[in-house]
Design a protein around this nucleic acid. Structure first.
Lengths: 404, 404
DNA sequence: TCCTTTTGTTCGTCCAGTAGACTATTTAAG
DNA sequence: CTTAAATAGTCTACTGGACGAACAAAAGGA
């Protein structure tokens, strides 16, 4: 219940600033009159509030728009693309990707650093992130943009205090934000706040923000590179769970008896059937494909398309196992849609059908109403989503930014 | 996302009224000074707000309390037990129970109407509810209390528009609120708002409110009389799902192949193994036990305790099936606690162990951290929880009540 | 008795949103 | 071209409601 929260009286002004900022952000260029009508505030109040937001660099005036009918044409407002920017990083086992976005969420620059193997010592990832960060910070500097924050997405679980435990990276209780923070000082970015998030959750947010699922009340996004994890969105808010483990479905048992042993100590886990390494091995694909790029462009989907027996069987088994595991989740959450992301998105449409069929097998009542589909977002979407958490934070609480 | 909600500016006064009312409700008799300190409002503001709440009959002054140390002793405030009351009804297949509670949630009167079989025509349930309502309304009248609302809990699904679909009662798209509303006019209770809720969700709220689980961030309560359903609470808020079906686990398939046919058309559903009728039959108990009273005081738990083979086997199978189904739910939600309510609570502690063991079998990662236990609440708790939704509604939004 | 401490009220202040008049800028009609 | 209607945005006075400080009330302790 956590009701002992800082029960403080509402700050009306803060709230109304955020209300106006959110409306302007969502609806693109809009007039003050429209904002007033939508928000329920008066025109004068909107004038006041938008004044503060323009002053603070979050909104900008776009000149007068065309008049559709009679009446004075509106001066349009929109998010200020030249205002504060954000950096998103995506740490995977074999590379670090990053992007710089403006307030609207548009990518201004990208960078990627491939590495053989970043697993083990967290310092490896920090070192790999350094050139990425340097480039993006420089790009921001060259366009005179302040970087309002850096957000990192990685496979694993992030505790409430921000420490990371990741089987995929071999980390345990790593305070990545602190490590990156000290590194940032060297790069001339000291003081920029760093946040860390589980990539499964960022992938789910990405589907809602960039994947056309903004209307889904309950969205589940299964993704992962090594192990599988699900991000769950309820009305656009990430479900965390009591210990931050909500959606950790990688170690649900999908083999009734026996099954391959898993890193986690048990056997027959979902990861041992539908995890990337396991799937490639079962399909007889020897090439060490680790990122989604490799899976999506690699041989597996092609083999499945061509009907190669071993590949089809392994992929269908993976889909069936995943669908069965998702059955319990679906009956608990009653989702609108289940999106298959990460390397799963590269497995082709038949995979989604297999997942959907197994889901229907396990809980027939839900199957007809739940959409199961592949993600259409690119492989580095987690970095973009991470950056978007920062810019959305600015829009959702402009007062903090305006206070500088 | 449902963001197109009535985005209206905050009503600061409304919010602060609710803040003060909630604090007073939770902490029992308190002084104005304490409220000011806790809420972050000033003493003068609290004086103003509590004045309105006392005026409106929601709070009452309790006289000056003892002074612990030096200083003027406080005049204590608490929820006004003589203020508005609420009626909760619990409709089951063979009876209608009801209670009248005051603002504090204390039961002032109870009533129950047993009937042979209320399934089929909704009018049967309405007629059975009539004497219950008459008695409770009379009790309220005799103590000069206004009934602020009536809430009904029943097994089944309640759509967003309030219509009920219940396999257990044989209803489909029934607008019970309207039916009861017209009946209420006859009983001199016209105008009292009626709401209808799924009893699984009310049972979950009951565990949070009366069952000692007020601190659980994620609470799952499995309950049911005929079919099983789970109520899910996230930070005290009921999870609804995209179609209002969140937690409907009764028709998750728990038999890989075959399994008994279910009412729903499929086969091998959880209800066919762990539902009450199925369980009693499998255990060889012929007596037609329908309500939890019958199961809890009936022969089954005794037989299990004594180790009668057929009863033990059937109950263990039911527990194993339920635990397996809850595995997927647990990995999705990462709950603090799973409470077994309804007739399951009468199956004894070994049942909970079986459920927990099967849960651990299915997802080992979660098992150690999730408590699985039986409900300690009485059989008619749904009625009390229903009434409490009404009184909590008053405390959570006192402004609406004060506006009369 | 008087001082200290804490409660609760009163009164004046001030912030921020409201109401509505007023100006600005367009289209459409005469 | 002139004028009316429509719409956008600003300005000023007003008001609701929270705040702050001073003060009265009611204790305990020296």
């Amino acid at each position: 219940m956590r009701r002992d929260a800082p029960a403080r009286p509402v700050q009306q002004h803060e709230h109304n600033l955020a209300l106006v900022a959110r409306l302007a952000a969502r609806a693109g260029p809009v007039s003050r009159a429209w904002l007033a009508q939508q928000s329920g505030l008066t025109k004068s109040t909107v004038t006041q509030l938008t004044g503060e937001l323009v002053e603070g660099g979050l909104l900008r005036e776009l000149g007068t728009g065309r008049a559709g009918g009679p009446g004075r044409p509106a001066t349009l407002l929109e998010l200020n693309a030249l205002g504060p920017a954000a950096i998103g990083l995506q740490v995977e086992a074999d590379h670090v990707a990053g992007c710089l976005t403006d307030l609207t969420g548009r990518v201004r620059d990208r960078a990627i650093r491939r590495a053989g193997d970043l697993r083990g010592e967290p310092g490896l990832a920090v070192r790999a992130a350094e050139p990425v960060l340097r480039r993006l910070l420089n790009t921001a500097l060259s366009t005179d943009s302040v970087v309002a924050g850096i957000a990192v997405g990685l496979p694993g679980r992030v505790s409430r205090t921000g420490t990371v435990t990741s089987a995929g990276l071999g980390w345990q209780g790593t305070d990545l934000a602190r490590l990156l923070g000290t590194r940032l000082a060297v790069l001339g970015g000291s003081g920029i706040p760093v946040t860390v998030r589980a990539s499964a959750r960022l992938a789910a947010l990405a589907e809602a923000w960039f994947g056309g699922e903004q209307d889904a009340e309950v969205l589940v996004c299964v993704s992962g590179e090594q192990g599988l994890g699900a991000g769950i969105l309820l009305d656009g808010t990430v479900l965390e769970g009591a210990r931050g483990a909500a959606g950790d479905i990688g170690h649900v048992r999908v083999r009734a008896s026996g099954g391959e042993p898993c890193e986690c100590g048990a056997a027959g886990c979902l990861d041992t059937v539908a995890g990337q390494t396991a799937l490639l091995r079962a399909a007889g694909v020897t090439e060490p494909a680790r990122s989604r790029l490799a899976a999506g462009e690699g041989p597996l989907p092609a083999l499945v398309r061509e009907g190669e027996r071993r590949a089809v069987t392994a992929t269908r088994r993976a889909g069936t196992a995943l669908g069965g595991a998702l059955g319990g989740l679906a009956s608990a959450l009653d989702p609108d849609v289940i999106v298959l992301g990460g390397y799963l998105a590269g497995l082709g449409p038949r995979f989604a059908e297999w997942v959907g069929a197994a889901l229907g097998q396990r809980c027939p009542g839900f199957a007809p109403s739940v959409r199961v589909r592949l993600s259409r977002l690119p492989a580095d979407i987690v970095a973009r989503a991470a950056a978007a958490t920062v810019t959305r934070g600015l829009v959702d609480d402009p007062a903090r930014w305006l206070a500088e």
